[in-house]
Design a protein around this nucleic acid. Structure first.
Length: 606
RNA sequence: GGGGGCGUAGCUCAGCUGGUUAGAGCGCCUGCCUGUCACGCAGGAGGUCGACGGUUCGAGCCCGUUCGUCCCCGCCA
């Protein structure tokens, strides 16, 4: 390999005119014209046209005729400027070509199962969409990765992480690795377990996050730590979830939440700059409560309005039966104003599609709609509303001509928020009112410390999160549910990119939390004994945050799917079509691990 | 764990009310072609219609089971 004089195809340009270049790469495309043959050579830098002419070099031409797509070649030739008519403006190297004096096939390639080349298209035509079943792409991931767009995804992922590492380095953070074989922790997602050979009947767990270790690094006095680290959760997958995923994990000592905000905003901004996206700062802070009230979820999409407004009071004494009974039984009525969409939303769409199909599928019983026309409300139920009620509605929802008002009412407050919040996103998508190429970041702060599930308290964030008030004296569950925590999420365009908290460094508060969560002293000792113990030896106040690298990268690159920015992801059912993992192992391996499998018997068919 | 969609050529898909020899585009192979870059032209190969069972004179199509995959919900401190 003549790697010393090798040139990368995409870097050859007009300035190299007349010089001889040595190229290595793959055959991207072949166009055989009889007595003239063109080949595009592709390497990681780009594509370049090679010209084979028997009058120029008969031997090279003869070899070129035997080449096929994806053969690996060495090509040596002279850089020539193309005639003006032959220039290709769609190719970065389209004004030059290489007249070949020597061509060698280094390896032969089978015909790939799908097309790898991403040819440039002619004017006015859409870029051909790459549309191959994802399982086939994953089965031949090494071929999929050869596609220029996939290479760009991973190049940019590297670039984002490089920018982040450089920034954190400058801020005095150091990267420390933490164990992958660790202890199973209670609560949270299911652990991936790893049986121990040397400790019969005992198991390691793969970390769901390095949470405990990064806090112990703070006890260890490192003060500023970060890590780009794989985390593992054995839960059912979703389009944007992987069983193993990458987090940018961070922790710092002697800081408060404002340190985190000041640290992370430039970090996120720099990351988005890799995708040529400018984020407007400072990022607004929205409390959890405000986010739930206005947007019905804890990760608000701020790119468009449609804020939810509580109108329960207006209908306290209404004669519209549904609203009357709901408002009088302590229910909740909320509305959104879809500005200027009266023409786009026909009565049949509102009544037959949205009210009868969409809203029930979101989980609510019904929906009430009104249009604002000529300063008045118009709908199928408006005759049940008094003049005052109509006036108040228009006023509170800022109703103007052409607006459409949508209301959801239910005795279950959480249901109203949830359904209207999801409807807000649904209708914004359907009516195309989400602006393109707009990115809105925000902090969601003041999360509740606890939530209630099946009558028991659970941590909203995790059990090491500092409450905003002294909870050591609070015993009543309803009172505890009102307590907020110093916990924060970073949200962009309605997607949670990361979150964190200021941690507890006071052992008394920590043990109170464990008690509230219903852990017995024995359980605490067994699960967290080492952790509690460490905190007795002088723990600095500390806090941190973790960012989902896969999500961040896919958003920066404008991609829907995190698998596009992961070299070797698992599919939807946590299976790898390429390696066929997971797979059975030999009895000897199991025996070494003191494990016997017991498969659930399949019911006999017939 | 619950609900829904899909499975036909290497890839992406069409296939009528159940009826002769299952089609298209791309890719692949052969030949022709001196300026293409989604080259063009002519010809050709390529199918266990996911699998199993059933209904029927007859099944790619209808029914059942099963496998695979995708989407939604549960789940993801």
């Amino acid at each position: 390999m003549n790697w010393k004089s090798r040139r990368f195809s995409g870097t050859v340009s007009l300035t190299d005119k007349g010089s001889e270049v040595t190229l290595y790469g793959w055959v991207d495309t072949i166009r055989d014209h009889g007595q003239l043959l063109f080949i595009h050579i592709r390497d990681r830098s780009g594509v370049l046209q090679l010209v084979f002419d028997p009058e120029y070099n008969k031997q090279s031409y003869d070899i070129a005729q035997t080449l096929r797509s994806e053969d690996v070649i060495e090509a040596i030739g002279t850089v020539i400027e193309r005639d003006d008519a032959a220039k290709n403006p769609h190719l970065p190297t389209g004004s030059i070509e290489i007249h070949i004096k020597s061509i060698k096939r280094l390896t032969k390639a089978l015909t790939p199962p799908f097309i790898i080349t991403e040819k440039e298209l002619k004017d006015g035509e859409e870029k051909a969409e790459f549309n191959v079943d994802e399982d086939i792409r994953l089965q031949y991931r090494y071929l999929d990765l050869r596609r220029p767009s996939m290479q760009q995804h991973l190049f940019k992922r590297y670039r984002i992480l490089k920018v982040i590492r450089d920034y954190l380095d400058k801020e005095g953070f150091i990267e420390v690795e933490t164990p992958v074989l660790t202890k199973s922790t209670p609560e949270g997602a299911r652990d991936y377990l790893v049986p121990s050979r040397t400790h019969e009947g005992h198991f390691y767990a793969l970390p769901q996050s390095p949470q405990l270790f990064k806090q112990l690094l703070m006890v260890g006095g490192f003060e500023r730590y970060f890590q780009v680290v794989k985390c593992f959760r054995d839960e059912d997958l979703r389009p944007n979830r992987q069983p193993e995923f990458t987090q940018l994990d961070m922790e710092a000592s002697f800081i408060d939440e404002t340190f985190i905000y000041n640290l992370i905003e430039p970090l996120i901004t720099k990351a988005f700059e890799i995708g040529d996206i400018k984020l407007e700062g400072p990022f607004p802070h929205i409390t959890y409560q405000e986010s739930m009230d206005k947007y019905g979820c804890d990760r608000p999409d701020l790119r468009f309005g449609l804020e939810m407004i509580n109108v329960t009071e207006i209908f306290k004494n209404t004669s519209y039966k549904i609203f009357q009974s709901i408002s009088q039984s302590n229910g909740l009525i909320k509305g959104i104003n879809i500005k200027g969409m009266a023409d786009q939303m026909s009565k049949s769409m509102l009544q037959e599609d949205l009210a009868k199909k969409v809203i029930p599928s979101l989980g609510a019983k019904g929906m009430t709609w009104m249009k604002v026309l000529d300063g008045k409300l118009e709908s199928n139920i408006v005759q049940f509303l008094s003049e005052d009620e109509q006036k108040n509605i228009i006023q509170q929802l800022d109703g103007q001509n052409g607006d459409v008002l949508i209301f959801i009412a239910d005795t279950d407050h959480a249901l109203v928020n949830d359904v209207l919040g999801r409807f807000r996103l649904y209708i914004a998508n359907r009516l195309n009112i989400i602006p393109k190429n707009v990115y809105k970041a925000c902090w969601v702060v003041d999360f509740p410390l606890y939530e209630r599930k099946d009558g028991r308290l659970h941590s909203v964030h995790h059990p090491f999160t500092t409450p905003k008030v002294d909870i050591t004296k609070i015993t009543d569950q309803d009172e505890l549910l009102k307590v907020t925590a110093i916990a924060y999420d970073i949200v962009v365009n309605g997607e949670e990119l990361g979150g964190g908290s200021i941690r507890i460094h006071d052992p008394n508060i920590q043990s109170k939390i464990f008690k509230d969560l219903g852990l017995t002293p024995e359980q605490i000792e067994q699960k967290f004994g080492f952790f509690i113990n460490a905190f007795k030896y002088g723990t600095p106040p500390h806090g941190g945050l973790a960012i989902g690298v896969d999500r961040l990268t896919s958003m920066v690159l404008g991609l829907e799917n995190i698998r596009e920015v992961i070299a070797f992801p698992k599919n939807r059912v946590a299976y790898c079509p390429m390696t066929q993992a997971p797979s059975p192992v030999t009895d000897d391996q199991l025996s070494d691990l003191h494990i016997r499998t017991q498969l659930t018997p399949k019911p006999e068919s017939k």
